[in-house]
């Protein structure tokens, strides 16, 4: 009996490799795959997906108890928080400058520099710095963050169409990577990459954030847009072939299912268990649709997902 002949796609494209860190900081490369997620029979996955753990520049006001108790006092200081995240298994620190938001304290460049410096000082893994997601404020604090981390190849975001020129300029000037975030839509993602390249940012200095919908809150849209972006990239279109980041932590922990412990149907089950399942299921689904970096929050999730990634990427 003849062996079954497996259909193997001949992809002509390759996901771009993006380097983070370096210059004294641990460095890593993400991307580089020549096939769809984890299909070892078909192509190579030279760099495994990595887990970024979120740190904020001020103690979070809205985190549920499950998270607050996991991090404890470390939440009071971004540096300590980053160390704690590292001890949980973080491969990247995802620093969110939340207090720069006009309604969260409206802090400026000076505070941003301080927070970034603390994290850079505390840990030696690559760092992603995210602004408050108000484009004007992002420009202010990310340009400041950029200077502090000059040469250490941070990733700065979110770079959206409205402020892409500023973020691109500062990334070019200081040798960083831009996190290009677009509303869940393939052509918008592609367009922003084109715009960034037009400004002069190198194509290997862009990571796409296609906007994460968590389980039950638009996951399917993100899932499919990511699959489409990945396929388009593998088919040889250079513009959507950047690695992708999904902000799983923020999106899954802001949902009712992860936060509310009382007054919800009994059929939702145990709150603590449910919240963790919400995060891990969102995470694994988006890894399977092409995420190269996922952000996570709960230490248990980090541990499980790390094992899963190891399983998915082990040789043989």
């Amino acid at each position: 009996m003849a062996p079954v002949e497996l259909p193997v796609e001949k992809w002509t494209g390759k996901i771009k490799e993006v380097k983070l860190g370096g210059n004294g900081r641990k460095s890593m490369v993400i991307g580089g795959e020549t096939t769809l997620p984890f299909l070892k029979f078909e192509g190579v996955l030279p760099n495994k997906p990595v887990i970024a753990v979120e740190v904020q520049d001020a103690p979070p006001k809205d985190w549920p108890q499950a998270l607050v108790s996991a991090y404890g006092d470390a939440l009071k200081d971004p540096g300590e928080w980053a160390k704690k995240a590292l001890s949980f298994g973080a491969e990247i620190i995802y620093l969110r400058l939340k207090s720069a938001h006009p309604e969260e304290g409206n802090t400026g460049a000076a505070e941003a520099k301080k927070a970034v410096a603390k994290v850079l000082e505390a840990v030696d893994v690559p760092v992603i710095v995210i602004g408050p997601e108000v484009p004007e404020k992002d420009n202010e604090v990310l340009v400041a963050a950029s200077e502090v981390g000059k040469g250490q190849r941070l990733a700065l975001g979110n770079c959206v169409e409205k402020n892409h020129r500023t973020i691109a300029a500062t990334c070019i000037a200081d040798g960083h990577v831009a996190i290009a975030k677009t509303p869940i839509e393939i052509n918008l993602a592609k367009q922003l990459n084109i715009l960034l390249c037009d400004v002069g940012l190198a194509a290997d200095s862009i990571i796409m954030d296609p906007t994460t919908g968590s389980l039950g809150y638009g996951l399917e849209y993100t899932y499919s847009v990511m699959e489409r972006l990945r396929i388009a990239g593998l088919m040889g279109d250079g513009m959507p072939s950047m690695p992708m980041l999904c902000d799983v932590g923020e999106e899954s922990w802001r949902q009712k299912e992860s936060r509310v412990t009382t007054g919800v149907p009994e059929t939702w089950g145990d709150p603590a268990e449910r919240a963790i399942n919400w995060e891990i299921i969102t995470a694994i689904s988006l890894l399977n649709s092409g995420a190269n970096i996922i952000t996570l929050r709960h230490p248990k999730t980090i541990e499980f997902l790390k094992n899963s990634i190891a399983q998915l990427t082990q040789a043989g």
Partner: peptide
Amino acid sequence: FTPALFYPLLTLRLNIYTDP
């Protein structure tokens, strides 16, 4: 079988099998 496991899995199934 626990509700805390089935509720998210059933939700995922609903999401993935939604007609895009």
